[in-house]
Write a protein that binds this DNA or RNA. Structure first.
Lengths: 203, 203
DNA sequence: ACCTGAACACCGTTCAAGT
DNA sequence: ACCTGAACACCGTTCAAGT
């Protein structure tokens, strides 16, 4: 036993994250364990704790990667749309499609909660903010007369909404879990919200 | 040891549920364990399994009670509103207020997931449906020309949206966790959605 | 310096044995 | 018939000891 130095600290981190992603993809949060991840990369549990503070930190990093993937998918969706409503709808559909095809990875984003006092680190929130900025960008062309603050609030309200639809539908709490019906729900949410937002009142 | 018969099966179930509620309220899902619940009611772990299939079933019943409380709170909110928009807003605010003041109980509703193949039982989904029916009822006065199916879809889209706002905001993923800002977000979501829904298009 | 392996204090779940 | 207590197979996390 003892020293091996087959891999650098960073390499071990990377391997662990990749292994954790695979376990989560296959078995969800419930199937994830430090021993399982360690075994998958050919190291002992102890080594994992040399490289991550604890399991929560590891999961946080898996989640940031998921946010990055989501962001990329949404950016891609923006390349095939014309006009503001079309673009917001495209973002919504891309989001729902990702959630549907990567259920476990996506669920981990919201099933995992940090222990009581601990708050979500800044670099994590920045990634969430980046996602909202895509929505703000799509909203901007239809909101000349509005302040950045208003657009920011609208993007958060609307996107949290899309997210809520995805959660209830995909975790089967609505009794209507098909991708089509989720799409119908998000489309309804987005179309009606935008009608109100672009129209008279707003607020 | 052996027989005691201090309490009937149903009494033990009731005591266990009450104890579980308290543990969850204080320490969240992560703090909940079969041994802890059993200890709190003065029985052994084994007894808990005589009365519940497993921990998942116990949690499911805690969650149904939460849905009942939420329903009651929303019904109460409907007593102090005039006109459709006012009533939907009242429902939204009641929901957010409940989520905020009972964070752990409310979080349990969505943090807890049944093991892979198992689906949410019918009696559970019925309770979720009952919540949506309250929203449908509030929506009805502003949708004479719409079918029940359309109203149902609108209620689900809108309410899932309110729920998503509450999740992201209260689990601190938005970086704006104050109750006021959550209220502002839900108000924005509801007002704009209703403007679109009541207005011309809809669809 | 790097990694292991065993330990500690917990889990959910089962079930022979006691009264 | 009802309940216990110990067992089993797991957890997350730590850390002395080995190379």
């Amino acid at each position: 036993m003892g020293r091996r130095s087959d891999h650098s600290r960073d390499e071990i981190r990377e391997m662990a994250l990749a292994a954790a992603e695979q376990v989560v993809a296959e078995q969800g949060l419930a199937g994830l364990s430090a021993r399982k991840v360690a075994g998958a990369i050919g190291y002992t549990v102890g080594t994992l704790y040399l490289v991550f503070d604890n399991l929560d930190e590891l999961i946080l990093h898996v989640n940031v990667r998921t946010l990055d993937e989501l962001h990329a998918v949404m950016v891609k969706a923006l390349r095939r749309c014309r006009g503001p409503e079309s673009c917001v709808l495209a973002l919504g559909r891309a989001y729902v499609r990702y959630a549907d095809t990567h259920r476990h990875r996506w669920s981990l984003l919201f099933e995992h909660r940090l222990p009581e006092g601990q708050e979500v680190p800044e670099w994590f929130r920045a990634k969430v903010a980046a996602m909202f900025e895509l929505v703000e960008g799509a909203l901007a062309p239809m909101s000349d007369h509005r302040s950045g603050r208003e657009i920011g609030l609208a993007a958060r309200a609307l996107w949290s909404g899309v997210h809520g639809v995805a959660i209830l539908a995909l975790t089967d709490k609505l009794g209507t879990a098909s991708v089509e019906s989720v799409q119908a729900l998000t489309d309804s949410l987005i179309r009606n919200y935008l009608a109100g937002f672009a129209g008279a009142g707003g607020r």
